[in-house]
Amino acid sequence: MKIFDLTHTLTNDMPVYSKPNGPHIKKVATIEANGYEETFLSMFSHNGTHIDSTKHMDKNGETLDDLDIDKFVGNAILIDVTNKEKIELEYLKEYEEKIQNCDFIIFKSGWSEYWGEEKYYEKYPTLTIQAATYIAQTPIKGIGMDMLSVDGYDSVDFNIHKILFKGKKLIVENLTNLKALPSEFLFVATPLKFNNADGSPVRAIGIVK
């Protein structure tokens, strides 16, 4: 069995969707001064590699702490969207049988290679309305991607988010290391369990037997 870490490291200068709203990580105790180490962590619920609950943009949606833990674990298929500007319905239909029998769709674009660069925010591939609607109507638990968002960074209406949330799909954003994975694997993205969680950083992993 091999386990792959699909998670970006949280740092004070990491890329964030809302640029002022990044984490603050500070060492507040050291072994030399205090006899132990302790770190102060302050972060937003959508910093780094994170999961969106449907409550993120739907006032009637479910929060992460309302969901059973098995919602965050499942069999995944990897769909390569490298060099695509849009993820079209016709392309997804090529994977229809696998989609109908998996728990998560993970989209590999290679965009994580631009982590820390301005290009990370620009022109990454996004689902079309038709493709998002199709996914929303499938029985899967959610989708993940190695990109900043399921909507373009310049989006003002967040239509793709809203379509997926209407279908009660979880969304995992800012994954990394997807190129190491085979086409099928076990996906795990467990959030912090805090009250009324609209989203949370996760430690996402892929497990290959």
Rank of each mutant, 00 (worst) to 15 (best):
M1E: 00
I3F: 02
H8W: 15
H8P: 03
L10P: 07
L10G: 12
L10Q: 13
T11D: 15
D13W: 14
M14T: 12
K19T: 15
G22A: 04
P23A: 05
P23F: 08
I25P: 06
I31A: 03
G35I: 03
T39L: 04
T39S: 10
N47P: 13
G48H: 06
H50F: 01
H50I: 03
I51K: 02
S53N: 09
M57G: 07
T63D: 02
D65R: 07
L67V: 04
D68G: 14
D68C: 07
K71H: 13
F72I: 04
V73R: 10
A76H: 06
E85C: 11
E88K: 15
L92V: 06
E94G: 06
E94Q: 14
K98V: 02
K98G: 03
K98Y: 08
Q100T: 03
N101C: 00
D103E: 08
F107P: 04
F107S: 07
K108W: 13
K108M: 14
K108N: 12
S109Q: 07
W115C: 03
G116D: 14
G116E: 11
E117A: 11
E118Q: 11
E118A: 12
Y121A: 04
K123R: 13
T126H: 07
Q130W: 02
Q130A: 15
Y134E: 08
A136W: 04
G144D: 11
D146R: 09
D146S: 13
M147S: 15
G152N: 09
G152K: 01
D154H: 05
V156P: 01
V156M: 13
D157R: 13
D157C: 06
I160Y: 06
H161W: 01
H161N: 12
K162G: 04
I163T: 10
F165L: 04
F165C: 01
G167V: 01
A180D: 15
F185D: 01
P191G: 08
P191F: 14
L192R: 10
F194T: 13
F194V: 11
A197Y: 13
D198C: 10
D198G: 04
S200C: 10
S200T: 08
P201Q: 05
P201R: 08
V202N: 05
V202E: 05
R203E: 15
I205D: 00
I207A: 02
I207D: 01
I207E: 04
I207N: 00
V208S: 02
K209Y: 05
